[in-house]
Design a protein around this nucleic acid. Structure first.
Lengths: 147, 147
DNA sequence: CTCCTTATGATACTCAGTATCAACTAATCA
DNA sequence: TGATTAGTTGATACTGAGTATCATAAGGAG
């Protein structure tokens, strides 16, 4: 788990400046354990620091994605969400009913990826495994209202 | 491979009406072998039938997704793309450089999904495996310009 | 052919994300 | 410490995807 200071230091080493808004965004982001949207960040920080601009939030999230601090997630709605990168490789399951998200680790995709690389002649650089289903709570609920 | 007529017939059985715009959209969609956006459909059909409305295209694509004729794909840009569903289960690799898309079949995810269901207590209903990498052409190009 | 219901297209809107640009400021150097 | 300068900011306006609304049009059952 990286600290805000360590991340800001990395930015600095990269020739980026450590500014108030960036510090606020990094600190906020590190507190999130669920996926969040740029709008979530913007709204939360607006309350603390009303002058912060929407564009700055987007720019800083882009920067953090570039630095590998956060990852972009495809939300079914078509908008971007971000999750803080953890050390282990992680993916998410989204509940189709309530939107709850659970993370899981240990996707052993390597053999599958190898066969796909073979089949398509692509050099696979990255993968995103996105699952949807029903969380435990909604499984019960669905049974109750099932036709 | 379904024909336009068969799909329109299914719509009809469902109580939907078979209209000119729907026919045009279904026919266009079936010709596509690469992922396409709603805007692609709209622009192409506008040329043939200039009165067609943007909303109709979105509505019809929603309907076709519901009928299982097309599948929604998450494009890295955050917008939706559609692909015609084929019989076998299919996924795609997107080239990060040129945007080319290749399909592959046979993702043997079942054992992985089972362990995830166990880990998260979700009932997994659907999965989307999205890969990115370099297509064969861009692999060569990257080597040429690599630093 | 008539009638009723669904579908259509024009329009206006929302919402996420981007472009622009003058004003500001972090960091470096003197 | 203060001057310099290049990166950063926030206001604003914009774009582009997708949605809501609603009067009009038209499919299809009878």
């Amino acid at each position: 788990m990286r600290t805000a200071e360590a991340i800001l230091e990395t930015m600095h080493e990269r020739g980026c400046r450590v500014t108030g808004p960036r510090r606020a965004i990094v600190e906020f982001v590190l507190e999130q354990c669920e996926p969040f949207s740029a709008e979530d960040v913007f709204r939360a920080l607006r309350r603390v620091q009303p002058t912060i601009g929407r564009a700055t939030v987007f720019r800083t999230l882009d920067l953090l994605a570039e630095l590998g601090v956060v990852e972009r997630v495809h939300h079914p709605s078509g908008t971007h969400r971000y999750v803080v990168s953890s050390d282990g490789h992680r993916h998410h399951v989204v509940c189709v009913r309530c939107g709850r998200v659970a993370a899981f680790s240990g996707c052993n995709l390597e053999p599958i990826l190898a066969s796909i690389a073979d089949q398509t002649r692509f050099r696979i650089l990255d993968h995103w495994l996105e699952l949807s289903g029903l969380c435990q709570a909604c499984q019960g609920e669905t049974m109750a209202v099932s036709r």
